[in-house]
Design a protein around this nucleic acid. Structure first.
Length: 594
RNA sequence: GGGGUCGUAGCUCAAUUGGUUAGAGCACCGGACUGUCGAUCCGGAGGUUGCGGGUUCGACCCCCGUCGACCUCGCCA
């Protein structure tokens, strides 16, 4: 007989009755009747009930067992009586009558119970992650993550992609997030950086002729955490393709994402490819952001012209100063109590905006101060333009275009949630396309890259030479699911002269481009194929599929808000010897986090 | 760095809003019990109410400061 087990804990069925078996696992739950006791024995696969009777040699030890101790059980498979069958367990028709039990590893008093679905403080969970990971939900999430990654790999390979590993120790890059730096022992005073993404490497792979690359790629960014953004590190399904247009990239990745979501979505619906394409400009207008949650049926309208020169002086005056008015319909909300509207207005103020005006319609009659001041004719225009029903409400966000769009977007989400309009059990995908190449930085008073500087501008060199930079669009796209940005990607700029010009418009001269992007720009001078790709976030895909709002729920050993690993004690101080070898000495000032 | 929420037993929470000895469930320890699957019943132990000041006859509760956790803004090309 095997030293530890003949079967795992989800394996035994009725057809094994009478067999002598050996199981090993954790004591999940114990029910002690004095002269008879039950143990739910758990391993990775499931649970089997162990019965220990008074006359068994194993009884004294079984009585003393504590939850989460690891034991080996020898016994005979027994059919349960009809009224003792547990339909919730796959092994519920049988039990194992223990003849011998060995305590393989004793568990101390638990800082975190493994049994049950109660919620526990983040700090306790992170400090005892090995216990937390034994718990049903988290254990299942991590298995799901592994299965999702395996599926992504298989689907990419089936599509003709090849996986390559790119360096982890690389060079610091001037654009983007803060780098994690690694001091060099051989070159005192110099540093490696961990890759924020394998961006340049994957483009160089295209130059090297590999045609279709992918990688489940670790990425490192030294930025602050959010619920959906783990500090430090995360994984992307990074891919790149040669000789492709934007549509070719979409056509390659849509079936992969659709396939993996279909595979793991259970009862939930998934958008069938091709996913809707929404221009950045339209998304900002209709949804108030560049990552619309299409489960929310509300669409925002621009009603600036209706308010221009109208009787509602606050908006009319603001419009003269360059503001716009965006209207957010609240279907069926017109008959709601005034507190609904005032509450929403107060929420907008709490969010730091000037406020949110409204009209509430009751039987087609518009109520509130805005309706009164604006007059029936203009109100009728709003109703007509937006197709409002007789008992709908409508909110107004007024401000400079970006500000108004932002508030309108937040209000759209809030109203959708409050009125319970968000479609459930569905994954709604879309592409956001035609991002602007540049934007104007109000603080620095200059033109900057709005997203990825390596994207190909639409219209290429001619656009850069002739157009207002702020009007130039890029072959740049995001994929969005249920309001979550899964990835951003682009058709890359593979022509050195266009790249120099693109950087020039953002204030980088030729020598700086040569210095900072040497590896890539140099390679492009020796025959680079047109190429493009994207990089969907693996953690976020798993979050969506596991229906978890927090990214820590789908990561094995996550860090906390302050980017600490409480279990391993990272980051930590290092020895004086290590510092000496690296030529590093701290000043008295001490480091101060920003 | 800014804003918000929170901090009471190992864990989850309560304490009639400033009033006697800070309670309950889970976990733990001891006892009873032969069919449970959140077993049940009886008993026990477990607290400087995050920490430091202050107000008060009296503070878990009010005030000031401080520490910590999470959420968020900034940041994340």
């Amino acid at each position: 007989m095997h030293a530890y087990r003949t079967h795992h804990c989800a394996q035994l069925r009725k057809d094994s009755v009478g067999q002598n078996v050996r199981l090993s696992g954790w004591v999940y739950r114990k029910r002690d009747f004095g002269n008879l006791l039950f143990i739910d024995l758990r391993d990775h696969y499931g649970i089997s009930q162990i019965v220990v009777e008074k006359d068994s040699a194993a009884f004294p030890l079984a009585e003393s067992l504590r939850s989460e101790s690891v034991i080996r059980v020898d016994g005979k498979v027994n059919a349960r009586a009809d009224d003792a069958i547990n339909p919730n367990l796959v092994t519920g028709e049988i039990e194992v009558r223990a003849t011998a039990i060995e305590l393989l590893s004793e568990a101390a008093d638990l800082p975190l119970p493994v049994f049950g679905n109660a919620e526990y403080p983040e700090e306790i969970r992170l400090r005892n992650r090995f216990l937390d990971l034994r718990r049903e939900k988290l254990h299942a999430n991590i298995v799901l993550r592994s299965n999702v990654i395996a599926s992504l790999r298989r689907r990419m390979i089936d599509q003709g992609f090849t996986e390559f590993q790119t360096p982890i120790l690389t060079a610091s890059s001037p654009e983007g997030a803060r780098d994690f730096l690694v001091p060099s022992r051989i070159h005192p005073g110099k540093f490696y950086a961990l890759p924020q993404a394998p961006q340049m490497f994957k483009q160089l792979l295209m130059v090297a002729g590999f045609d279709r690359y992918f990688q489940i790629a670790p990425c490192f960014r030294d930025e602050d955490a959010r619920a959906d953004r783990s500090p430090g590190e995360f994984y992307q399904l990074d891919f790149e393709m040669s000789f492709v247009t934007q549509e070719d990239v979409f056509a390659a990745i849509e079936p992969v994402l659709y396939g993996v979501f279909e595979e793991f979505s259970g009862e939930r619906d998934v958008t069938t490819p091709p996913f809707p394409r929404i221009a950045y400009k339209d998304s900002m207008l209709k949804y108030g952001n560049d990552k619309p949650d299409l489960r929310n049926p509300i669409e925002i309208s621009d009603v600036t012209e209706i308010f221009r020169g109208g009787g509602f002086a606050v908006f009319a005056k603001a419009i003269e100063d360059g503001s716009v008015v965006r209207a957010i319909p609240a279907p069926g909300a017109g008959v709601r109590a005034r507190s609904f509207f005032d509450g929403t207005n107060q929420w907008a103020k709490d969010e730091g905006f000037a406020g949110l005006g409204y009209i509430n319609f009751k039987g087609g009659e518009g109520g509130g101060g805005i309706a009164k001041n604006l007059g029936p004719e203009r109100v009728a225009l709003i109703v007509k333009q937006m197709g409002l029903g007789p008992d709908d409400g409508v909110f107004f966000s007024c401000g400079k275009p970006l500000e108004a769009a932002k508030l309108a977007g937040l209000a759209r989400t809030r109203v959708g949630v409050e009125l319970d309009l968000i479609e459930k059990n569905t994954f709604k995908f879309c592409w956001i396309v035609d991002f602007p190449m540049y934007e104007f930085d109000e603080v620095e008073q200059k033109v900057i890259f709005s997203h990825n500087p390596f994207s190909m501008p639409q219209g290429e060199m001619e656009a850069l030479m002739t157009m207002n930079p702020l009007d130039i669009l890029a072959y740049q796209y995001d994929i969005v699911c249920n309001g979550i940005e899964l990835s951003s990607g682009a058709i890359r700029n593979h022509k050195p002269d266009i790249m120099y010009k693109a950087f020039e418009l953002a204030g980088y001269d030729r020598s700086l481009v040569d210095e900072k992007f040497r590896g890539m720009i140099n390679a492009f001078k020796f025959g680079a194929p047109p190429h493009g790709g994207s990089a969907p976030g693996v953690d976020r895909i798993v979050m969506l599929l596991a229906d978890e709002p927090n990214i820590r729920e789908v990561i094995l050993f996550p860090m906390n808000q302050k980017a600490e690993d409480l279990m391993m004690g990272a980051p930590s101080e290092v020895s004086a010897k290590q510092l000496r070898e690296l030529g590093i000495k701290f000043t008295n000032d001490g480091p101060k986090p920003q």
